[in-house]
Design a protein around this nucleic acid. Structure first.
Lengths: 240, 240
DNA sequence: AAAGGCTTACGAACACTGTTTGTACAACAA
DNA sequence: TTGTTGTACAAACAGTGTTCGTAAGCCTTT
């Protein structure tokens, strides 16, 4: 298995093993991860983490450049459970789908981490690079030319991340379940006021929409299957 | 053309025609839109809008329930330029692609609005409902069964919104162009430190990645084409 | 061993944020 | 004319990220 063992920390992370006294990057990450798991990303603020460590918010800036960097490190930590397979040309598609679903589940598991992934223009964190390399390897094993593979990997990871983000909006607290109820009732309430010939397709499909709540977790797999099928049947853009 | 004329305001919008004195929802929206266009979504705060109207932040709460609702109204206003076509079964696919690209461009045109679309679990605003109805109409015209059409519309709009959001992260200020440069240089810098046999696929594709900046605007169309192709060749999930 | 420099730690401060509350005022209905 | 309704506004609350000055500690050099 290539690239499964953990990589060394990137050089731009300031205080990897630097803390001489009370604090350390490990301690900060432990506190931040605990807060992330129990209170969500919104609550994972500099002040909250510092309070958990019994210190001031300013002290964290010796180990971390930004709140954004701290969140990115949390994203990297959340991807620890993903393991990248050795490509098997006979099973590459199944392997790829598993890898993508694993990644999505890792993002959903830690609430709010999907938003970090979406906010990060290009992920530069070690595990993100490993993941990208793994996806490219599987696509190459499937016979996809490198130029198409890059574009496909982009589309797949974008879709995956967005779907994970959307799901972590609705599954986090029970409060957002009420929010979803409020939304759908808003729509029906609005449709009742409108002339009955307006928005007919939406009217017809609304029952599928509300029932689709349970089937929505499959929506992720469905979108990814669509993308993969489309990739295989598509006219190559390099030749077009 | 069905549903092209503007719809009446939804009943839950409080002060549609209510302002008896200085303020009004229209004035608030005008100020907010001007600030959105010139300073971005982050700067479009309650206090900033109120200051632009020469009043206090609290006054806005007579016309708008939340900052979130104000942002949603801005999203709705940004979608004003999209026109929904009358489905022509012979050209449905081209029509659909145009509609989706139009929507994406509308989201990108007003900086930060794509984020609002992504944060909104289910868009309930009039124009969003019109758009959804229009997409469903085109899919039905293409012979897609209603159940699949709903799932496809979900996947397409998710992909579209996420791509628009990603693009508005890198195109907004020139500062983020430097950020993108910093990211790629971080990656190469990191790869130089690693053993040269690690992440080989990413190494090989990195040149395509950096060159891909110019071709990235086509990434959106490419992803949507993949989704559409995949939809047409996919085994129907209802029978599986 | 003593001195210097570097870095962590910490609290205070700055400039913000969304939202709530109390009070004053204007306009409409009875 | 009185009363009710809902707008306007300022102040206040509880937060936020980040910067800065100061004090203390450790390591290295003299």
């Amino acid at each position: 298995m290539t690239d499964r063992d953990s990589l060394p920390p990137p050089p731009w992370v300031r205080g990897a093993n630097r803390g001489r006294r009370n604090l350390s990057l490990n301690a900060i990450m432990d506190s931040a991860m605990r807060i992330l798991e129990t209170e969500g990303l919104e609550a994972t603020t500099m002040r909250r983490v510092a309070q958990d460590l019994g210190t001031g918010a300013g002290s964290l800036y010796a180990y971390v450049q930004n709140k954004a960097e701290l969140h990115e490190l949390l994203l990297d930590a959340a991807m620890a459970t993903i393991d990248i397979p050795e490509p098997d040309p006979a099973r590459w598609r199944e392997q790829l789908m598993d890898l993508l679903l694993d990644t999505a589940h890792a993002l959903i598991a830690k609430p709010g981490v999907a938003r970090v992934a979406l906010d990060t223009v290009i992920p530069t964190t070690p595990r993100a690079l490993q993941l990208m390399d793994g996806v490219l390897a599987l696509l190459h094993a499937g016979g996809i030319p490198p130029r198409d593979a890059m574009a496909a990997a982009d589309a797949l990871s974008l879709h995956l991340t967005a779907a994970a983000y959307e799901m972590s909006l609705t599954t986090d607290p029970a409060a957002t379940a009420r929010e979803l109820q409020r939304r759908t009732s808003q729509i029906t309430q609005y449709l009742d006021i409108l002339p009955p010939d307006r928005l007919p397709r939406l009217r017809a499909s609304l029952t599928l929409f509300t029932d689709g709540e349970d089937a929505q977790p499959d929506g992720l797999r469905l979108g990814l299957e669509m993308l993969l099928n489309g990739l295989l049947t598509r006219v190559r853009p390099a030749q077009q």
